[in-house]
Design a protein around this nucleic acid. Sequence first.
RNA 1: GGGUGCUUAGCUCAGUCGGAAGAGCGUCGCCUUUACACGGCGAAGGUCGUGGGUUCGAACCCCUCAGCACCCACCA
Length: 1011
Amino acid sequence: MTEPRDAKTPDLDAPLARLAEALDERHRAQDEIVRGLRPPAGLSPPKLIDRVRGIDPAIFLRAPALPPTTPALADLIQPSATPEATMTPEPALAKTYDPHAIEQARYARWEAAGHFKPQGRDAPYCIMLPPPNVTGSLHMGHAFQDTLMDALIRYHRMQGFRTLWQCGTDHAGIATQMVVERQLGLKGSSRHDLGRDRFVDAVWDWKAESGGTISQQLRRMGASMDWSRERFTMDDGLSAAVTEVFVRLHEEGLIYRGKRLVNWDPVLNTAISDLEVVATEEQGHLWHIRYPLEDGSGYVVVATTRPETLLGDAAVAVHPDDERYQALIGKRVALPLCDRTIPVIADTYVDPAFGSGCVKITPAHDFNDYAVGERHDLPKINIFTDNAAINDAAPAAYRGLDRVVARQRVVADLEALGLIDKIDPHKLMVPRGDRSQAVIEPYLTDQWFVRIAPLAEPAIACVEDGRIRFVPENWSKTYFEWMRNIEDWCISRQLWWGHRIPAWYAPDGSIHVGRTEREARAKSGLGADVPLRQDEDVLDTWFSSALWPFSTLGWPEKTPELETFYPTSVLVTGFDIIFFWVARMIMMGLKFMGDVPFHEVYIHGLVRDADGNKMSKSKGNILDPIDLIDGIELEPLVGKRTSGLMRPEDAPKIAAATRRQFADGIPSYGTDALRFTFASMATQGRDVRFDLGRIEGYRNFCNKIWNASRYVLMTVGSEPLPASGNARGGLAERWIRHRLGQALTAVRDGFDAYRFDLSAQAIYEFIWDEFCDWYIELAKVTLNDSTASEADKLLVRRTLLEVLEAALRALHPLMPFITEELWLKIAQLLGKAGDTIMTQTYPRAAEYPLDPKAAAEVDWLKTVVLGVRRIRAESNLEPARRIPLQVKGGSADEQQWLDECAPFIQQLARVERIERVPHARSDATTALAGETTLLVPLMDLIDPAVEADRLAKEIARLEQDLARVSAKLANDSFVARAPAEVVNKERKRAADNTDAIDRLQSQLRRLRPDG
RNA sequence: GGGUGCUUAGCUCAGUCGGAAGAGCGUCGCCUUUACACGGCGAAGGUCGUGGGUUCGAACCCCUCAGCACCCACCA
């Protein structure tokens, strides 16, 4: 439960447990052989070799001393770097599936064997991993997303596509810089103490040290990405792409530098883009302030939520049609606390109905006021420093005050002057930085921008004309909505960690852009004597992310990978970064590759907790996917959830809630169960609530598969079976193949439509409800039948193996580990070569042609068995007791089926003998199967009163249905207008019901002749 | 203010073409049946948010209202 989580140290426990189990088993077997309880055959050292092969030998160097009976074992261990097929039978499987015994070793083997690399020459299939922050660790959103991508990748790889899952990490400018600054802070240092170069070195060191966490966690998820192609957005190659794009856009005039009002984070001291600002509703005040008229004829009242910005006011505005203020337009007012006057202007921006109908205009500190200021040619008076303290443009009394303090001082001073008209409570949307949570200031600075309109236009067109398709489709509306209202993108950040802007300044202030300083110099014809200073700013992280689909493939070089895999097949991501990332990739891809970056965008939902809340550290409701895989005990879980909180006072509440919800901690479910749960929740892009009940159910499903395979392996023996030739097998064999074909169609349709839930459901139902509940039980009948021929039994065994083997392949994309483990054992018995399931062919429905006749017969057989079982359950007959069964009537088909199915019925319904009778006896209990009436003689077993109730209830149900159908058929419009097919169906239904009611009623009369 | 979703069994959710309302979990019986108690067999449980419309027929299409969620936005 509390295994080392750090994936960098190999997990000792699981392989050692396996080894111990193998040794234990060998000792037991040897003991049994000595005592003559077991034949000596079937136990030889190679099995043990296979059991330990693939384990990193280093593990044994660190392991406790091996048991004394195994001196030769060390010789048997081979380096895992040369994985081989396990082509010899292994010892019997454990009774309960244990994911830990297999998962990590299987993954290491795949990776070492190079199975994740693109193979073959077939059509390419490529997915770009949305690069996680290099500082990050895996959360539920990643785990969900990665499961879906890996399922697609494995599904296509098995179909023979030349499949590439391109992976890598993002340098995450602000986030990473903040983490390292915090660490410096703990040591009493700061980035300013270090200076830029040493700070950037420190970030690289930190990345080298702890940047690999998420890569290791992705491996735990079974993600089959091509690690040999792993990229980082700050790599040389990707940095070169960033520079290239910047220079080319600048050359075309699509990147420019200018003094604009931008979103300024006064804590991080950097500009941020519109998208990085989140507006949160907060309780504030609306201050009504009197501005005296210059001519002494009174005052106007303006309403504001930010009284301190008064110091930067450039005008007071009213609506041009507002009758109350017509006389004021053109006059001047004395700005309180400041020694200057400002004009009263008219602008339609003002809403006369809000506040007093007069607005103070502060062009340097409000986006609307900026626009008004431009229209009226007002001065832009900046009153803040970079830290949002009052600067020297304001009256001396306020200089140096923080904006919060300045507000208090301004309000107090206004009050003292009697200029506060009133103060109302007011709810307002406060802009905050998504990283720092600081209140964002509109702030006038020099920044770099991308002129976005020329890029947006083709990006809109390619979604309109279907070159890119959103799934679900309605997300394209969101995309259009944003793209049609898009503003220029501020791409410069006043940070140290990121791609440095390739622009240089000459002493005269001129700007020179180039791929290198040398190129910039050459382009501008500057001599070596002109000193140049490079721009201090770095680029928005999303600038490099926008290039990800081609920069990772080698652009601007013309590489074979770029040629092969661009445009990529599908992008799998959450709706939250459609604007941040998806839209920008589309714009950049079209601009620089001349084609879309991907053909489809699958948007998945957000993973929420069981109560529907967003998971967040501060709420203490985070689930760690690794904890679901490995399990975690209560105390460590409480510890994780309550440490490092922004508000430590929440800890007791969170601890209590956690103890209530997870009284016994979280059990270990394994990766496959987690993945299957995600897949089953992946419906049409809706948010998903993560419910532990689901994952437990799918853990049980793993165990079901494990045990079904265990049964099949036990039944078949240890030698490969001879091929069965063209023999189709008996009824049950034809039927299960028919059902497999149907299931495969459903599974593939699901994957092809990104309906992972439907695929998961189809394969779950096939394996559990059809294969396990019915086919294995039917197979047992033949295998246990002493009169059945060896040829028939061989066919049954062969079918068990073949169907299970195909089902494992079908399931592999969702459950890679258990399917690999079992397939290696199953496939060799079929004489299949191959050292892994992951490169086998995905099963095709066409290989299992439909057999409607077998399906009809088994459906009838099931009805018979279910009917008898129901009688048994409702009459409280002991399950073990064999009961006699009489059969009356039935169609010609049914009579033939009865003969063929008699052994199945006897076994599955626990019937001692079947007897065909011309008339029902009075003391029998009844069930119907098609036109056949099933009768179980009461004898002393059944209470006639109970049986009469049962029949009456069934009759009532049928009569209700008959009434509904009859009403429909009595409606002339229905008969006239509904398709003949539907009408006939209803007619047959009415006839069947009438017949069934008839038969049940006559039985009821026999049961109580007086009633 | 604009936009997008959602509302189906106690809970979480499917329901594809408009043609008998489904699954998992939970609940209630019975069962140590030789793959599996992480199991088997059986059962109960729904006026498909409200009101209208279209249709022979509506969970599904159209409109109204109610509740919930999310996104975008410059009401000081």
